[in-house]
Design a protein around this nucleic acid. Structure first.
Lengths: 121, 121
DNA sequence: GTTAAAGGCAACCAAATGGTTGCGTTATTG
DNA sequence: CAATAACGCAACCATTTGGTTGCCTTTAAC
């Protein structure tokens, strides 16, 4: 039997190298509170920390931390304005994440197509 | 001044309720190793734990744990076969995640459109 | 029927995460 | 200028996470 080549070997891995870059974006999206913040921000424009905290059951500090995580992932950015700090949604990185999921879905479809054509022979 | 209603209040939140459901999926995707596993699985069909471990610098146990996380999120499933346990990609939940990102992007576009039309008046 | 491969279980570990509280700073507002 | 609103900083905490090691079980191969 020919020794099965490992699918995760360096060579094979480099083909998918674009994907791993978006792991931090997904990680930032992988929290209910942060998803809620994103949803609110992308619907309502620039909001202050106090505004974003009102109506939640967590502390302002917790919200600040979540916003920082989102900012590190490039999903939001802040605008200093007087004694307030307004936060705004940033769509660029989200598009990256969308393209990543599209890539995966495409590869899956291709694999299915290949499998199908092999079965038809 | 009318008291600014909190954007995260229960009423406003229920409008976006579909989103929070996909937080666990994003969390599962939010790790480089797991993204790599997904990429390999969606390209190569069903693979065993040993195969998935070969070529990585982490332990078989670590891979097992990652696969379990992906399975909990519904992104992969396993097939017992003899002494092996084959893992396969499951596209359903990934589609959910895609739709979530689409929803966010849509809402952002709508917000921009509204803003634009307000500025034009 | 041994031997070796594939995997499961469980304990353990360090670091990251999600959250809190307390207190200090900056900027409005009256 | 005094009061207060909005925020920053830092310490602290429990839990989760990503990973390891050691050992046991199951299954295939010879």
């Amino acid at each position: 039997m020919s020794p099965r080549t490992s699918p995760l070997a360096k060579g094979a891995r480099s083909k998918h190298s674009g994907l791993q870059k978006s792991a931090p974006i997904f990680a930032a999206l992988g929290d209910e509170t942060r998803l809620r913040l994103i949803a609110v921000l992308c619907a309502g424009g620039a909001l202050s920390i106090a505004q974003l905290t009102a109506g939640t059951d967590i502390t302002r500090q917790a919200v600040t931390k979540h916003l920082q995580v989102l900012a590190d992932a490039g999903l939001v950015h802040d605008i200093r304005q007087g004694r307030e700090r307004l936060w705004e949604f940033e769509p660029t990185r989200l598009e990256e994440a969308r393209r990543s999921l599209d890539t995966i879905a495409q590869q899956w479809d291709q694999a299915l197509t290949r499998l199908k054509s092999m079965l038809e022979q």
